[in-house]
Structures are given as C-alpha cells and as structure tokens.
C-alpha cells in the first residue's frame, strides 16, 4: 500500500482484508484482496463487469452466505473482529452493516412500514414515528413522501424508491452502508440527489460503493479501488485489485497503465 494512503488510514479502519480469495464452488472469482477501508469515508469500487466488485462488497456483510457454493480463503476483519469466525452470527453482522442494492427493492408495504421494518426486527422501543421521519429526512426524501407515508413504497418513482431503500438501511442505525451500483437504474437527476446524499451520510457512516460511473467515483469518493479481471490457463476469469489509493491519485496519477486507461474511458 502506498505511504500516503497508509497515513490516512491510521485514523480508523473499518474493514481490513488479508489475502482474500473468494470462490463460487471451485471457481475462484476474486483473488488476493488485501485492503483497508477507512471510517467515515466513501470508498468506491470500480472496474469492468464481472471483475468481482459485487462479490467483494457482499462479503463485507456476509450476504454471500446465501449462496451455497460460496466460500472464502483468507480473512476479513471488521473493527478487528474476524467477520467469518465460526462464532459470528451473520444476522448480527447485517444489522450493523447495511446494504443498498442496484435495483431499488422496497417491500410491497407502506412507506412507513418499509422504514420501520428493520427497527421492528430489532425490537426498537423508542418513538417509531420520530425514527421513521428522521430516517426519511436523512435520505432527503421527506418532502416527497411526508403526506403519503401510508401509501405503497413500490408506487414511488425509481429514484424515490432508491432513497427509500437508503432510508430503510439508515433506520437500523448501522455503522457501514454498502451500496452496489445504487444509481445504475436511476435517471441523472435522481443520481445527483443520491450523490449529494452520500456526502451528507459520510459524516456519520462509512460507505463502500460500487459504481460503473467514473464521474460518480471521482466526484463522490475519497478512496477508489480499481478491479480488473484476468483469465487463467483454464479460462477462469478471476478478478483482482489493480490499484487502490486516494481517489485523486487513481484519477490523476495512477501507477498502472490499466488504471489510467480505464478511468480515461479507453477500456472496459
């Protein structure tokens, strides 16, 4: 890792991976991921399709556990705790590490019940109305929905649905929010709204975001990891991190030619 990154990371590290290899069955999808994700910052994952960005981000909240063939080699630490230790309950992990998906996926319930879903699971005892309002406000959605909290979340527009999903993730007061291409299905204006939101959220949350949008990564993120994919002799395409650094370094003076080509749009 580069020296200036290291000094930045000394502040606080949320995730640390150590020689992480990720498999689906015998297929090695990603190899040798060694990285640290700093607290209260936005870390972006960029790279061509199929290089394993989603695979890596889903390891951070153990969502890959749902896939039977999935397993890892190496370690992931969350605040020093081995995330895949046998005594770690993945359900507990996901309560602290929220996720927003590529396709907005509100429940077919009211807007209110969408937000209250997580807190109810946790047995939240406080003022639910207040928590719902606060969460929707932090997702910059309050003005859009304040008069129709009882109507279906699925009836909102795509951009509103995605902010609803962000609000829903915030409502359980996680430490980290993982976002896997949260703007991929949104129009440009909704995208900008979500990006503005990211800047506000990073005061209180650590954010890891996968994005296909170079401008989004360079505008919004503090750190950027560039992933690439390489076929081995058996034709298996395994992803790996080419370069991970401060976002300005990745976009202005990357050390690798592949990074340079990718961020300038000449590749992928």
């Amino acid at each position: 890792m580069t020296p200036n990154l290291e000094s930045a990371l000394q502040t606080d590290t949320v995730f640390r991976t150590d020689n992480l290899d990720i498999y689906y069955g015998s297929f090695k999808a990603v190899r040798d991921v060694t990285m640290e994700i700093p607290k209260n910052a936005i870390t972006a994952f960029i790279g061509p399709s199929g290089c394993g960005k989603s695979t890596v981000i889903r390891c951070f909240n153990r969502l890959n556990d749902l896939i039977k063939s999935f397993h890892i080699d190496g370690k992931i630490f969350y605040k020093g705790q081995d995330l895949y230790a046998s005594d770690v309950d993945p359900v507990e992990v996901r309560r602290q590490i929220g996720m927003v998906f590529q396709k907005p996926n509100p429940f077919p319930k009211s807007i209110y019940d969408n937000i209250a879903f997580g807190p109810r699971l946790l047995g939240y005892k406080g003022d639910m109305d207040e928590l719902v309002e606060r969460s929707i406000k932090s997702a910059a959605l309050w003005d859009d929905v304040k008069d129709k909290l009882k109507s279906l979340g699925t009836d909102l527009s795509g951009g509103q649905q995605q902010r609803l999903c962000i609000a829903r993730a915030i409502a359980v007061q996680p430490d980290v929010i993982l976002m896997d291409e949260p703007c991929a299905a949104l129009d440009p204006i909704s995208t900008l709204k979500v990006e503005d939101l990211l800047q506000e959220l990073k005061e209180n949350y650590t954010i890891v975001i996968v994005t296909h949008n170079m401008q989004q990564a360079s505008r919004s993120s503090d750190y950027t990891a560039f992933f690439n994919v390489q076929a081995n002799e058996k034709g298996q395409r395994t992803g790996y991190i080419v370069e991970y650094d401060r976002t300005e370094v990745i976009f202005q003076s990357p050390k690798h030619k592949a990074t340079q080509e990718y961020v300038s749009g000449r590749f992928g």
Binding site: V91, E92, F101, K103, N105, F107, R168, A169, V172
Partner: peptide, 18 residues
C-alpha cells in the same frame, strides 16, 4: 417473490424465519 426482496430483508438483519 423476487429474490431482491429476500436480499433486502437479509440485508437489514432479518433471519430466515423473519
């Protein structure tokens, strides 16, 4: 029921039964 809804619930820390 779309897989996305299942993932959304798991992502919020719901167990299989929840």
């Amino acid at each position: 029921v779309p897989l996305e809804l299942r993932q959304a619930a798991y992502g919020l820390g719901a167990s299989r039964w929840e």
